Amino acid sequence: MIPTTDLCDEFRDQLTLAKPIFRQFGLKRTFAGPIKTVKVFEDNVLVKKALETIPEGSVLVVDGGGSMRCALMGDMLAEIAVNRNLAGIIIHGMIRDSQEINEMNIGIFSLGTNPFKSIKEGKGETDVPVEFAGVEWKPGEWVYADEDGIVLAKEKLK
């Protein structure tokens, strides 16, 4: 993947920068791909379903409302993403099992960690535009993420 710094140098007017509110987890430090979205609140049923069904190479963007009261993903869900060869995951919420996740070949950005698991009611929405970190995440648009930041583009740039 082209570093976000190089993308910003070449395509500045075509990129939107997400606010740097995330921590990085997993062995994969850079990733890019088309956005697929899930909007939930303290419930990860639709997160699991999306991980099992979105196309290979996609980036799952989870709007968890910024809740820090429970985790929306742990090592078992991260393992699904690894096995399905998803590009990465961005969660506006928390994860757990961070030690295990940090040994997996996946890239995850989240607000942090919390040992509590989520509820399992299946409430929420999929494939809808969501807004957090100062940007709108639209299904089908592209996201590029690495240690220097997360940028969004309307289409694949390189």
Rank of each mutant, 00 (worst) to 15 (best):
F25K: 09
F22V: 08
E136T: 12
T30W: 12
I21L: 15
V59A: 03
G66P: 14
W142A: 12
L15A: 11
D63K: 07
Y144S: 11
K138V: 12
T53I: 03
D148Q: 10
F132E: 10
I150D: 01
K28I: 11
E131K: 15
D13H: 15
M76Q: 08
V61P: 05
V38I: 13
H92L: 03
S67T: 09
P34K: 01
S58T: 11
G26L: 08
N114E: 11
W137N: 02
A87L: 06
V61H: 04
G93D: 04
A153H: 10
W142K: 09
E56F: 03
P55N: 10
P55W: 09
N85Y: 12
E136H: 05
Y144F: 14
E56K: 14
G26D: 08
A87P: 10
F25S: 03
C70T: 04
A71W: 07
A145W: 06
I95N: 05
V45Q: 07
A78R: 04
E42W: 00
P129T: 06
M68R: 11
G64V: 05
E147K: 04
M68C: 05
H92R: 04
G88E: 07
K39R: 14
E131A: 07
G74K: 05
L86V: 05
D9N: 11
E131W: 00
L7W: 08
F109S: 08
I108A: 04
E103R: 15
L60F: 02
A78M: 00
K39Q: 15
E79D: 14
E10Q: 14
L86S: 06
K36L: 00
I119Q: 06
C8V: 07
F22G: 00
D148I: 01
A78Q: 07
G107I: 01
P115Y: 00
E103N: 11
L51A: 11
N85G: 03
A153R: 10
E136N: 12
A50F: 07
E136L: 00
D13F: 09
